[in-house]
């Protein structure tokens, strides 16, 4: 869809030069695909193995093992990039894992004035400590409210899922995918995963609702979800626009260079027009003749 445009614009921003690591590219000639993850919520058994694996892989403390954690809906936090929630639905209890959606055109990255938030060419959206100045504009902008800030720290970081960027570079799968005993989480190229999801829905049209969450929401992203119940019942935002969120401020940003060039010219002309006959020289110097 907007992929090609996106890659082009990324190239234009010089992002390509910032990522020397091409570990994921099997064939440089082949146009690159975003990687992604397909979560089948009908398969998830709520064992939270992915949570534990995630914490381990990124050096966080073990998540709370108390089964009562399901009593309330959790969001990802500064010490947990990925959380599993339980939802009561008309099809019984359903578990859904929540984390960064790795948008195709992320609002967080468009918001970031230091490019600390970065959409990599491979798909994961990563945060880079050495760049971030902690303005938290990414948090304001992310339609899924994913980035979290360490308010308790004098040297705070932004915390959010990076799709196991380091593991990917080593050629491994994301930790949660590897840990899932129910094969509810699949890793692959985003395009393939969408095909797979569609095929799955077509195969069992009564089991699934006919929508892949994350295919179009906020312009689509690397995280894709299948579900047996409407996504609103699983705590997903269903009021988001199906456009990449950076589009929302694009018109404004396009207007900037126009104003920046036309405005001074206009002001100068106006200032000359209001000049009295005997004020040929710029205003401030005239009295120093």
């Amino acid at each position: 869809m907007n992929r090609r445009n996106f890659v082009k614009s990324l190239g234009g921003l010089g992002t390509a030069a910032l990522i020397p690591d091409k570990a994921l590219a099997e064939d440089p000639a082949k146009p690159k695909e975003f990687v992604g993850i397909l979560v089948d919520t009908t398969r998830c058994i709520g064992c939270r193995s992915c949570e534990i694996a995630c914490a381990e892989a990124h050096g966080f403390p073990d998540p709370d093992s108390d089964p009562n954690v399901f009593e309330r809906e959790r969001s990802p936090s500064t010490t947990q990039w990925s959380v599993v929630n339980r939802y009561e639905t008309r099809k019984g209890e359903v578990y859904a894992k929540k984390q960064c959606m790795h948008c195709n055109q992320p609002a967080c990255a468009a918001a970031c004035l230091t490019k600390a938030m970065l959409k990599t060419e491979e798909g994961p959206v990563i945060w880079r400590e050495d760049k971030c100045m902690g303005c938290r504009f990414c948090m304001i902008s992310c339609p899924f409210d994913v980035p979290k800030f360490e308010y308790e720290s004098p040297v705070p970081k932004i915390q959010k899922c990076n799709l196991c960027w380091d593991r990917l570079k080593e050629g491994k799968e994301p930790a949660c995918v590897e840990a899932c005993p129910a094969e509810a989480i699949k890793f692959g190229s985003r395009r393939d995963l969408i095909e797979m999801g569609r095929a799955q829905i077509a195969k069992e049209p009564d089991t699934y609702i006919h929508q892949i969450y994350g295919e179009n929401e906020a312009g689509g992203g690397s995280y894709l979800y299948l579900s047996g119940v409407p996504f609103g019942q699983l705590g997903f935002r269903t009021d988001l626009d199906n456009i990449p969120y950076p589009e929302l401020s694009k018109d404004y940003l396009y207007a900037v260079p126009v104003i920046l060039t036309l405005w001074p010219a206009f002001l100068l002309a106006l200032s000359n027009a209001t000049k009295k006959d005997d004020e040929r020289r710029p205003y401030e110097t005239q009295n120093e003749r």
Partner: peptide, 17 residues
């Protein structure tokens, strides 16, 4: 890190901020 967007090693030009 406030100088980052100024010194030019990390221009987030697509950012309103």
């Amino acid at each position: 890190k406030v100088v980052n967007p100024i010194i030019g090693n990390s221009f987030g030009v697509s950012s309103v901020m």
